[in-house]
Nucleic acid binder design. Sequence first.
RNA 1: GCGCCUGUAGCUCAGCUGGAUAGAGCAACGGACUUCUAAUCCGUAGGCCGCAGGUUCGAAUCCUGCCAGGCGUACCA
Length: 554
Amino acid sequence: MKQKLKKLIWDAVKTAYEDNALPSSEFPDVEIEEPKVEKHGDFSTNIAMKMASIQKMSPRKISEIIIDHISDPDNLLSGTDIAGPGFINFFINESSWHPVLRQIHEAGNEFGASDIGRGKRIQVEFVSSNPTGPLHVGHGRGASVGDSTANILSFCGYDVQKEYYINDSGRQIHTLGQSVLFRYREQLGEDVEFPEECYQGDYIRELAEEVRQREGDALMSSGEEAAIEYCARYASKKIIEGIKIDLDSFGVRFNRWFSEQSLYDSGKVDADIKELQDKGMIYKEDGALWFKTTEYGDEKDRVVVRNNGQTTYFASDIAYHKDKYDRGYEKVIDVWGADHHGYIPRMTAAIEASGRKKDQFHVILVQLVNLLRDGEPVAMSTRAGEFVTLDDVIREVGKDAARFIFLTRHHESPLDFDLELARKKTNDNPVYYVQYVHARISSIIKKAGERGINHIAWDDQGVAMLREPEEIRLIKNMARYPEVVRNSAEFMEPHRITFFLRNLASAFHTYYNKHRVLEDDEVLCRGRLYLILTIKNVIHNGLTLLGVSAPEKM
RNA sequence: GCGCCUGUAGCUCAGCUGGAUAGAGCAACGGACUUCUAAUCCGUAGGCCGCAGGUUCGAAUCCUGCCAGGCGUACCA
């Protein structure tokens, strides 16, 4: 619709120039907006104001000239208006909206999809929680944002891969091994003092128990390091399995699980450090190796190999990201917790140093989640073992409510997640509001079937009867969907879909309460059934992008 | 100190990347079910868009400076 209008205006401007009504041939882009106030029409443009200084004429005069030169062969417009400082307002004919319904219906699950990605290969890495404990709510938010963003990008024609990076190497894995070993010894009757820096959660005890059942007391006699190594391997493997299960029940599936350890095993970390050394990007100071990240805008240089010979997390991250690009991704997106934001400049620096462009890397920072129960904060700390796991949340409030609520805010603003609220099946809970539309429509369609209407299809006469303001409003609303999806992809902001759905749901509920679909007038009934079928279609599409189900019945 | 994020209705947040009279949901108050699901709807009330300057036809939106909160600022991850 917008495109059609844009063309009308553009043609009018050109014609006006050819008729010598406008002195200059220099025209700005046609920008079309949707006014907030209905009185201002369906669309408006500010083009006259933009042209004023170039044409050396008053905006209102230019508006008049443009309107005079508009030709509207398809009878799209029911009226135009000049308002305020020189806005041109356009009123669209009711009947011009009707074909939108057909587009939606014919596109089906593809309605809203586009090809703006042009098959560009893009990778989204998210969650990537360390395998030292189960996922908690914060990871849930990262999972929701990452997964939906990937879905949306894919819907917009990008070739998207979802990946999880497993930090199965380094100090914290060692600590994990220690933690399990301590519990293991404890269980075998040894009097041990459990160190504070170890992981305190009950899951460590369970893992130790499993180790004991498999190995008996064999680890008591093997060397300590070997025992820790064994426990670390076993525990991280089990934890990752648990994480996979949790994510699966959260509706998140990765294309690939990438092991940090594999970068060491294949020698890639060492090779990349060597390569950077050869390029002169690395120097030695105080016994450590430093990467000159300051040359790419970081505030200080960063250590890649410590003076004890151990590589830092940064070192493997450099190798990991290099590997991503080597695998052919043109763009790499990382979803991180906001507490890692200080890490962005050095990562960007490393990527630039390896010859990639800055804009080939993008970090989505997700702010922290404050978990509440009835308005009271719930304390959480992985180390102290006090946390509510993602699994707990899914069990308590359900996957759909959790995923939806995580996407009810811009990802850069902190989110309060109230367990009691999320569990309530009331109108406090936005997910039901949207799902309810789908269920209601399904119910009506079912009822129509009972009355012998089994096939809902485009019907000229029926659709032509959709003239109620609420009906036109619904169609206009849905017509915006493709643009919302595109913007959502472009800005990587899945919450835009959430807000769109709430809006559409609201418009439907209003309509539902005011008008009956199953009217005695058969023609009208056909038209309305077609309308709600397309609404169901759009709600379904949107919820799918968010990873939320669209129930037939509630 | 420096850097990033956030300040919009009593509360939780949107605001289409500069547009016209700033919008929702909760909470408050008053209404609507013998009719397609009341997990719904309708109405009322509620605002110096953190503060102060600047940019221009026009600012919640862009720039600068303050103020407040969160996070970061490791040879941790």
